[in-house]
């Protein structure tokens, strides 16, 4: 069980959080003309890197804030966590 530092609450066990996927995905703008291919890339396609990965987590049994986690997908090492409007330090 991972230990994740919520930027609002501090270190908590993984069972308080839910995983929210790749944090680098940007939703297309509303009303934007977009090709099917680009839209499919946004909806379905995700990289699956071995190693460092920026991802979203939701402190669902806590403060209910979404935030960013930089985690090694192979070792589970967490390099940094930050609020949505911040950037990782590491």
């Amino acid at each position: 069980m991972l230990e994740i530092k919520c930027p609002y609450c501090g270190k908590r066990s993984q069972n308080e959080f839910s995983y929210g996927g790749d944090a680098t995905i940007k939703r297309p703008q509303l009303g934007e003309e977009i090709s099917t291919e680009d839209w499919d890339n946004f909806v379905y396609y995700r990289d699956n890197p071995r190693g460092k990965h920026s991802e979203l987590w939701h402190h669902v049994s806590g403060c209910r804030q979404w935030f960013k986690v930089s985690r090694d997908t192979a070792t589970h090492e967490i390099f940094d966590t930050c609020k949505m409007n911040e950037d990782f330090n590491v």
Binding site: G20, H58, Q65, W66
Partner: peptide, 14 residues
């Protein structure tokens, strides 16, 4: 649904 709304408010359209 609550998580969904929070996601769009906090992540997509802050």
């Amino acid at each position: 649904v609550l998580s969904h709304l929070e996601y769009y408010l906090q992540v997509v359209w802050p």
